[in-house]
Simulated scan of single mutants.
Amino acid sequence: MADQSRLDDNLAEQSGEAVAVYAAGAIPWRVRQGVLEVLLIHRPRYDDWSWPKGKLDRGETMPECAVREVREEVGVEGRLGIPLPATSYRVTAGLKLVHYWALKVPKSAVVRPDGSEVDTTHWCDVEEASTLLSNPTDVLPLRWLAEAYRRGELDTRPIILLRHAKAKPRASWTKAEGDRTLAASGVRQAAAVGRLLMVWRPERVVTSPWRRCVDTVRPYLSAARGQVKVRVNDKLTEASHSRRPEKAAAIVPALFDKRKSAVICTHRPVLPTLLAEFAARCEPGVESELPAEDPYLAPGEMLVFHVAVDGPARVIAAEQLKPFDD
């Protein structure tokens, strides 16, 4: 499972120096006539072949940066797939760290280089790409992507487990528990959650009806502009879960069976029950990386489970991510 802060610390420790530049990007891919193809970009400024990538803007997370760079450099709107190995190399400013994801290019997409950062693009197979790439470190995520394709684990859909944003303190709340609202910091956090969820654009939102959960997903629903199916489910409340946890647990296999991308928004006490259901559907090794101790997720934090599209609905990879914290 990818925990970005931990990965960054490990890479910095291995290199013996602090990271000076953070960047993110993606490897756009498609399958044409049974052959896996990837999209290379040519940058006239450096006269090199690379992947769409760039430095983080202020207020961005790594996944948001990756999606934006693909959109800006080649004009493709897509959602991120499985995480790929990060790469690091030295630039003038010092150590540069680049996070990568796979990104399936929709069949309807038209690739359009921006004409500034990128002057041309080139679809090719993995072997050709490995010879054209100018930076040897760019081959590592490519090989990882190709191996995932060979195993039938490249094409995935996300099912996301989200803990609601920071709420007003329970001890100071005198009204009904289901009406407890987000704190001021939680409102800002919910807006950041909405931006981060747009990276995967889940088609379904399943949420506890309690206000702090509904208000956490509201910004995403606004950004998605009515293209999301919403289900408010009482089984996800703290009260219902304490009486019948198996009812909450049943929500996870139901979403797997529907084979749609989704986000579940719930409360801290419900998390271990849902996590157990996800763990039972993980490929070997993935479940051992899931959080196992209270509080499992911080307010506004999420787990992105990448579920195989073909064959049995199993979790291929998982990422633990926080929205931008101002």
Score class of each variant (00 low, 15 high):
residue 103 L to K: 12
residue 302 M to L: 09
residue 14 Q to P: 02
residue 122 H to F: 09
residue 74 V to S: 04
residue 184 A to D: 15
residue 308 A to M: 07
residue 39 L to W: 13
residue 305 F to P: 04
residue 182 L to K: 05
residue 38 V to S: 00
residue 45 R to V: 06
residue 233 N to F: 01
residue 75 G to D: 08
residue 74 V to W: 01
residue 281 R to C: 06
residue 192 A to K: 07
residue 2 A to K: 10
residue 309 V to F: 05
residue 128 E to A: 13
residue 27 I to F: 12
residue 243 R to F: 00
residue 100 Y to F: 14
residue 207 T to D: 05
residue 276 A to E: 12
residue 160 I to W: 08
residue 72 E to K: 12
residue 188 R to T: 08
residue 186 G to F: 04
residue 32 R to L: 13
residue 60 E to G: 01
residue 159 I to W: 00
residue 293 E to G: 00
residue 42 H to R: 14
residue 98 V to A: 06
residue 19 V to D: 01
residue 234 D to W: 13
residue 270 V to L: 13
residue 66 A to V: 06
residue 82 I to V: 15
residue 41 I to W: 11
residue 164 H to Y: 00
residue 49 W to Y: 15
residue 214 V to H: 07
residue 12 A to D: 04
residue 251 I to Q: 01
residue 280 A to M: 01
residue 168 K to L: 13
residue 295 P to W: 00
residue 319 E to G: 04
residue 156 T to Q: 11
residue 47 D to S: 12
residue 79 R to H: 14
residue 158 P to Y: 04
residue 158 P to L: 03
residue 86 A to Q: 05
residue 174 T to C: 08
residue 277 E to K: 09
residue 193 V to G: 03
residue 23 A to T: 09
residue 311 G to S: 12
residue 271 L to I: 14
residue 47 D to P: 00
residue 141 P to C: 09
residue 267 H to V: 00
residue 41 I to D: 11
residue 20 A to T: 02
residue 60 E to I: 05
residue 112 R to E: 14
residue 147 E to P: 01
residue 154 L to C: 13
residue 204 R to K: 13
residue 52 P to F: 11
residue 196 L to I: 09
residue 52 P to N: 13
residue 33 Q to R: 14
residue 230 V to S: 10
residue 325 D to F: 07
residue 194 G to R: 08
residue 144 W to I: 05
residue 264 I to H: 03
residue 57 D to R: 15
residue 231 R to L: 07
residue 286 V to S: 02
residue 50 S to E: 14
residue 175 K to D: 15
residue 169 P to Y: 02
residue 225 R to H: 15
residue 295 P to V: 02
residue 251 I to Y: 01
residue 319 E to N: 05
residue 322 K to D: 00
residue 179 D to K: 07
residue 124 C to Y: 06
residue 183 A to N: 10
residue 13 E to T: 06
residue 255 L to K: 06
residue 176 A to F: 07
residue 267 H to S: 07
residue 94 G to S: 00
residue 138 D to G: 04
residue 202 P to V: 08
residue 25 G to N: 07
residue 264 I to E: 01
residue 177 E to Q: 09
residue 198 M to G: 03
